[in-house]
Each structure stands twice: as C-alpha cells, then as structure tokens.
Amino acid sequence: MAGRDGKEPEGPPGSEDMTPSAAPAQRGEATRAEAFARWVEPEVEVLLRVAHTLTGSWSDADDVVQDTLVRAWGAVDRFDGRHPRAWLLTILRRTHLNSLRRGRPDLVEDDVLARHRPAFGAAHASSPEQVVDDRAFDADVAEAVGSLGEQFRRAVLLVDVDHLTYDEAAAVLDVPTGTVVSRVSRGRSRLRAALAHRRPRGGSR
C-alpha cells in the first residue's frame, strides 16, 4: 500500500536498522569514520538530487541532506554496510517527512510544483542539427512534468531524471517497487499524451 507516512521503518535489505540486536561487530572509531566516509561520500550528489526532487529547492535540499548526514552518522553503528545508497535514501525520506511535519511553509507541496517548472526551463542539446527543436521540446517536457500529479511526477523524476533504480525510488517513496513501476509507467504515458502535439516525424528508428 502506498504512503505510510510516520510508520515504523521497513527499509530494503541492508537499509537503516534501528534494532540494537542488529548492531554489527564493534568498530574502532577510526574504522567507523572511514567506513562512513566510504559509504557516504559517493552518494552525496544522489542525496542532493533526490532531496531536490522531494523539496523543489536547493536550499531546502541542502537542509534535508545535512540533517540526513547527521542522522546517518548517528546510526552508522547499526548499519550493516550493505546497500549504502538505499540506507541513506531511507534516512533521507524520513528526514524529509520530519521536516514536513515541522510545518515549514517552504516545503508545502504547491510550492514544490511551482518551483519545479522554472528549474526545467532552460535546456541544451548535444546534436547541432536538433538544438532548436530539442530546446523547444525540452521546455515542453519540463512543463509537462510540472503538470503531472505529485505521485507520478516524483516517480518519473526519481527514475528518469535522477536515475535511481526502481528499488531505490521505492525506498525514497516508501512504497513497493511495483508501485513505482506503475507510477513511472503511468507518468510517462501522461507525459506522452501531454506531448502529443510534439510527436516526432516519421516512424523509423
């Protein structure tokens, strides 16, 4: 079932585990710091991207990621070292939910939608022959993404823009992987419908 905000965690394998009995063997402080840096450093950009997708602004994403890192550091002794990205994304999701519960007005959903649109306004293309057309198309796609319903937009952004796997997106959204697959599929379908006036010419590949 989708959206179980506020419920006890049931993260993916290797994800955040708060049960004391699950603590791994004792680690020295140096090893702890080293392991934390090794797990977290490569994921910082992904965390910021996902936080931006969730919050809609870089300043809010900064706050969520900073809180996430502090919480991850506090929980590192209970992390078994498997799937660090999923572990961090689970903490990030909870951190984001907590920030929403605190009622920060800059994290209200309507603002997210409004702020997403200009973020996608500019565009670039790699093929000189298609620069003009791609720019116009990208702007249309950005607008269409901004018009998607919240559930579909987040799923599409996480998978198709932030390039999370379906499992990772499921950890962020706290829904089953199959739900993410469905939302992405339906989100893409709605995008294509919204972009029907921009269908490519010809049918060959």
């Binding site: 991207r49 931006h52 997708t53 500019a122 565009a123 791609d134 990208d138 823009v161």
Partner: peptide
C-alpha cells in the same frame, strides 16, 4: 537532459 540541469 533535465537531469543535467538537475545537478546540484
């Protein structure tokens, strides 16, 4: 391409 603009 939107992802490129989505870079932190």
């Amino acid at each position: 391409r939107l992802g490129d603009q989505h870079a932190p």
